[in-house]
């Protein structure tokens, strides 16, 4: 990993997105408190922290998943570059945000459709009708998700017939097919066995060439293995953000240190 080329200060680094004073409320409960956070382009940024710390909540702000549920409120901004639009602005259509920023969920959630249709779904939602273009995109996405070889002969099979790890890679392919700018991963391996987990991790490292990645993980080793930057969150606050290496070797916050050394969590 070439993380050393980007210093912590991020001077000269190219940002893909940036949270500025972001707060998030469910009803009266403030789940995120005033978060400032950079997302560097074509890098993997990991979010770690004990359960309930708000890391998934934070991740789900990036594609406005919270808008599906009532009684919530964003404050502050998440700017998406290069255009610098604030994607949590009330006037910005969440659907447009989701068309640019894809997500892979904790539990594999393929649709009960064929493998092919699962991957093609995002294109269909965008009104793409050109069959050969869809074919091409499906193959490209499945190759990028390292699934093509396993499913090329059975694209019409029901996605439910795949194993858990394959299903998760299918969900990654589904997210990749529409060429998202950022790909969000919400604990993508927590429902998978170690071998499937290793494959997904490898994939995440490869994918950063194509797409900016933000990953929530409960597994610190995973964060250390795949990410260039790591953010540690605790009770809705961003405690520390730094180079992954530095976070794990020389954290500046006492809390971070206690967490990564396993004293709580």
């Amino acid at each position: 990993m070439n993380t050393e080329t980007f210093p912590t200060a991020k001077a000269g680094a190219e940002l893909k997105a940036q949270a500025k004073a972001l707060s998030f409320h469910y009803g009266d409960f403030q789940a995120l408190k005033n978060i400032d956070f950079p997302v560097e382009r074509n890098q993997v940024t990991a979010l770690i922290g004990p359960s309930g710390c708000g890391k998934s909540t934070f991740l789900r702000c990036f594609n406005r998943m919270h808008d599906l549920y009532p009684n919530m409120r964003y404050e502050g901004e998440i700017l998406l570059y290069p255009d610098g639009v604030n994607i949590v602005d009330r006037h910005v259509d969440p659907i447009e945000v989701r068309m640019r920023i894809s997500m892979v969920f904790q539990k594999p959630n393929p649709f009960p459709k064929s493998i092919y249709e699962n991957v093609a779904y995002g294109l269909r939602v965008r009104g793409v009708r050109n069959r050969s273009l869809i074919d091409e995109k499906v193959e490209e996405a499945l190759r990028a998700a390292a699934l093509w070889g396993e499913v090329r002969d059975r694209l019409d099979d029901l996605a439910f017939n795949l194993s858990g790890g394959q299903q998760q890679r299918l969900c990654i392919a589904r997210a990749l097919a529409t060429d998202p700018e950022i790909l969000l991963f919400d604990e993508p391996t927590s429902a998978l066995d170690p071998i499937a987990t290793a494959k997904i991790e490898e994939l995440v490292s490869e994918l950063k060439e194509k797409v900016t990645i933000l990953i929530v993980t409960h597994n610190m080793q995973q964060a250390a293995r795949v990410s260039a930057y790591t953010a540690f969150m605790y009770i809705g606050e961003l405690i520390e953000f730094d180079d992954t290496k530095r976070i794990f070797t020389n954290p500046s916050s006492k809390l971070t240190e206690e967490y990564i050394t396993g004293r709580f969590g």
Binding site: L80, D83, V85, V92, D93, E96, V97, M99, R100, R126, G127, V128, L133, T178, D179
Partner: peptide, 8 residues
């Protein structure tokens, strides 16, 4: 995107 969203 093949059909870039207008607003963004």
């Amino acid at each position: 995107l093949k059909h870039p969203p207008a607003t963004l």
